[in-house]
Structure formats: structure tokens, C-alpha cells
Simulated assay, not measured.
Amino acid sequence: MLDDIWVDESVFALRPDFAVLLVTTHGLRNGPSDDRSRAWLADASACSAQPEKIEAWRDAYRAFGAKPSRTRPSVDALSRRLPLPEINQVVDAYNSISVKHALPIGGEDLDHYSGPARLIRAVGDEESEEALGRPEPGEVIWRDDTGVTCRRWNWRQGARTRLTEETVNALFILERLEPMTMEELKTAGEELGDLLSELSPEVRVHTRLLSGGR
């Protein structure tokens, strides 16, 4: 699965500085938020704001015609919800890393995927859940063989592949634009892996980096 994920060249043409760190985990044990995951959220909520990173995502949204004041990049929306909301242990883990590094992160249930994930610019006729709406031509979307899994790059995820307390195998999508460095992207991935391993000591973690320079 990890080796089959791809990013279309049109996305790199839109933002040559884009890179995505893909993290797959097998053998997760998830559960309701607890004192440990609440502490992660509290620590992240206390981190200093990093507006320059969030502004880079707003610029990326404008580049494909979206209005970031109406449909906000995920990390922008999340950073406005302080203190961070409790969802479940695994989602709390990646939300805390997202806010700490001002880095959009998505979590997907691999067992609900149909074919590999890919990041493309929409044609406009892609199948999409009613709650998500149909993507507009040129919009950046994540999708699989069934249809859209996340609209407007990282704005809103579909319910079909959402992480739940029953999730065992997952894909985490860590999306980087400058001024975030590649080293910080790598560090964020390692920190996420550490938190997931703390939740599930026997979890198997694999990573893959995709960028315009390969």
C-alpha cells in the first residue's frame, strides 16, 4: 500500500515546495481519550503560534481557487480550536503533533480504502460523499478508487476512511510547505511514531517521503 501512493505532477507544479511524509501503522490499539492523550493535547495547546507556516497553506489554497477564510486549511482550523478537542487516543496524538509543528496531518483507516491513496487536481466529476460535496475542477484532493477521501488538500475528510476507536491499520499524511524544513517534517513524523508506539507497543510503523525532487 505505501509504495503505491502517489502525488500527481500537477500538484507539484502548483507548489514545488510541497512534500508529504506518509506513515503507515499496522496493529494499532485505539481507545477513548485518556489522561495521557489529554496531556498531549494540553502541551500542544500551549505551543507558540507559527503564523508563517499557516499563511503558506492559505496561499496554496488561493492558488487553486479556494478561499481560505471560508474553507480553512486543517491546521488553521485546528489551531483556532484551543484548547484542542478530545476525539480518541490516536486522533489526539496526531492532532497534538499537527498543532505543535503547524503541520497539516490527516489520519485514514487503511481497511476502508479501495486502492491506493493519491493526491491529484480534480476533474470535477469524482464520486464524493454528500457531506463533502463534489470537488471543483482544479481543486486539490486526496482520493482512492472509490472516490474523494479529503477535499481541498486537507480541508475536510470523508467519513468513510475516518479513524475510529476500532481502527487497527492506519495511514497518516503529514503535508509540508516552506518555510517548514524537511528536517522538521522528519522530526514530526518521528514524534508521531513515538506517540503511536506508546499507545500500541507492538505497532509496526513504516514511512515514505514524496516530494517534487523525489
Results as ranks from 00 to 15, higher is better:
Pro179Trp: 07
Leu110Glu: 12
Ser69Ala: 12
Ile97Leu: 14
Leu210Asn: 11
Tyr94Lys: 02
Pro16Lys: 01
Gly189Leu: 08
Asn88Glu: 09
Arg58Lys: 04
Thr207Gln: 12
Glu52Ser: 10
Ser37His: 04
Ala39Ile: 09
Tyr113Gln: 13
Leu110Ser: 06
Asp92Ser: 14
Glu183Tyr: 15
Glu136Pro: 01
Thr164Phe: 03
Asp8Gln: 05
Arg204Ser: 08
Pro201Lys: 03
Glu55Cys: 01
Thr71Tyr: 11
Glu9His: 02
Ile141Val: 15
Ala19Asp: 08
Val20Ala: 14
Trp155Pro: 00
Pro51Gly: 05
Val91Ile: 15
Asp8Ser: 11
Trp142Gly: 09
Thr149Tyr: 02
Ser45Pro: 15
Leu119Asn: 06
Asn169Asp: 14
Leu84Asn: 03
Trp57Asn: 03
Arg70Phe: 00
Asp4Gln: 11
Val140Asn: 11
Pro104Asp: 01
Ala63Lys: 08
Val11Gly: 12
Leu163Gln: 03
Glu198Gly: 01
Val99Gly: 03
Phe18Trp: 08
Gly107Ala: 00
Ala117Pro: 07
Glu175Phe: 00
His112Pro: 00
His206Tyr: 01
Gly107Ser: 01
Arg81Thr: 04
Thr25Pro: 09
Val90Leu: 12
Leu21Cys: 03
Arg62Ala: 12
Ala131Lys: 13
Leu119Lys: 07
Arg176Met: 06
Ile141Phe: 07
Ser10Tyr: 00
Arg36Gly: 05
Val168Arg: 10
Arg134His: 15
Lys53Ser: 05
Asp76Lys: 01
Arg38Thr: 02
Trp155Asp: 10
Pro201Phe: 11
Leu21Ile: 04
Ile120Asn: 14
Ala63Asn: 04
Ser197Tyr: 11
Gly133His: 11
Arg80Asn: 10
Tyr113Ala: 15
Val168Ala: 04
Thr167Gly: 01
Pro104Gly: 00
Val205Ile: 12
Glu183Leu: 09
Ala13Tyr: 02
Ser69Asn: 12
Leu21Glu: 07
Asp17Val: 09
Pro51Asp: 04
Pro32Ala: 10
Arg70Tyr: 00
Ile105Gly: 03
Thr149Glu: 05
Gly124Phe: 15
Glu86Ser: 09
Arg160Phe: 13
Asn95Gln: 10
Gln50Ile: 04
Val90Pro: 00
Arg143Trp: 06
Ile87Val: 15
Leu185Lys: 06
Asp109Val: 02
Gly138Ser: 12
Ser200Gly: 06
Gly106Glu: 06
Glu52Trp: 06
Pro32Gln: 12
Gly212Cys: 05
Leu28Val: 08
Leu177Ser: 06
Leu14Pro: 01
Pro68Ala: 13
Ala46Ser: 05
Gly115Lys: 12
Gly124Ala: 08
Trp6Gln: 14
Leu78Phe: 07
Thr149Gly: 07
Asp43Gln: 08
Arg143Leu: 01
Leu163Gly: 00
Gly115His: 09
Phe18Glu: 02
Gly31Trp: 03
